[in-house]
Amino acid sequence: MLKHLNEKNSVTIYSVTDPCFETYGRVISNINCNELISFMEQNTVIPEKGNIYVASVEELERTHIAEFFKNRIYGEMPIQIGYCNGRNTTYNGFEYHKGSEINIAVTDFMLVLGHTWEIKDNTYRIEDAKVFFVEKGTAIEMYQTTLHLSPCRVSDIGFKDVVILPRGTNTPLNNGGTDETAIGEERLLLQRNKWVIAHPDREPLIKQGAYPGLLGENKELYY
């Protein structure tokens, strides 16, 4: 699959097992996520268009493996386990959180990643990002300095992804919305523990109040 994706695209697609992934995150090995994957396969759907994101799913949070992530990865901090399913193929923008994000690939997919230290004056250049292939069944930790957004599909079917984050992340702000008069990093805050830079062409994000700071062509990834 990785060879096929590289033949289809003008940008290099790396595996998350490649050493160049080490500044973005790590593969969590020797862990069995079949309980989460099985629930996702049997109980969630891929929308006909776009993506769906659910921050917290009680059934996923009651699984035995949830305790492993809470205790071993997040040091007994409260977590939420949800999912993102969809059909995305374009970069669209980037977000980051204060705290790692765990992704578990229920299907194969690609991730477009960057580093927070590459943000300049609330802007980020698309050409600075790298694309990584995540094989079905793989669990990865993305560090809090890693820019990311929705996965990109590698088949007509779409993608399914389990998403684990500190509890409360990606939920509405207490003050009711983005402060468009803010400066610096504060202007990027879109939801609780969610800072976002959007491509100006990505209307759904812009309408939510995301800052249009992604510079360059909003690339599409092919499969």
Rank of each mutant, 00 (worst) to 15 (best):
P47N: 06
L60Y: 03
Y83S: 09
G168S: 10
Y96F: 15
P78A: 12
N9T: 05
H115V: 02
N92W: 02
I119T: 04
E186K: 15
A105Y: 04
S150N: 07
T171A: 10
K3L: 14
N88H: 04
G216C: 12
I157C: 06
H148N: 03
E185W: 06
A210T: 01
N88T: 02
G184P: 10
G114Y: 00
E180P: 00
R192G: 00
E186Y: 04
D128P: 00
L165W: 01
P204F: 03
I37L: 09
G50D: 06
E22L: 12
A66Y: 05
Y96A: 08
S10T: 12
E127Y: 08
L189D: 02
P151W: 01
K70D: 08
K98C: 12
E127M: 11
T178R: 15
H148E: 01
S10P: 00
K130G: 05
A66E: 05
G93E: 01
G82E: 09
I65F: 07
Y124L: 13
L205C: 05
P19Q: 09
L190W: 01
L2F: 01
W195H: 13
A182W: 06
K49W: 00
G177V: 07
L214K: 09
Y222L: 14
R167W: 03
E95Y: 05
A139F: 06
K194Y: 01
G213C: 10
T146H: 01
Y143T: 14
T123D: 06
F159W: 05
E48G: 11
N71L: 07
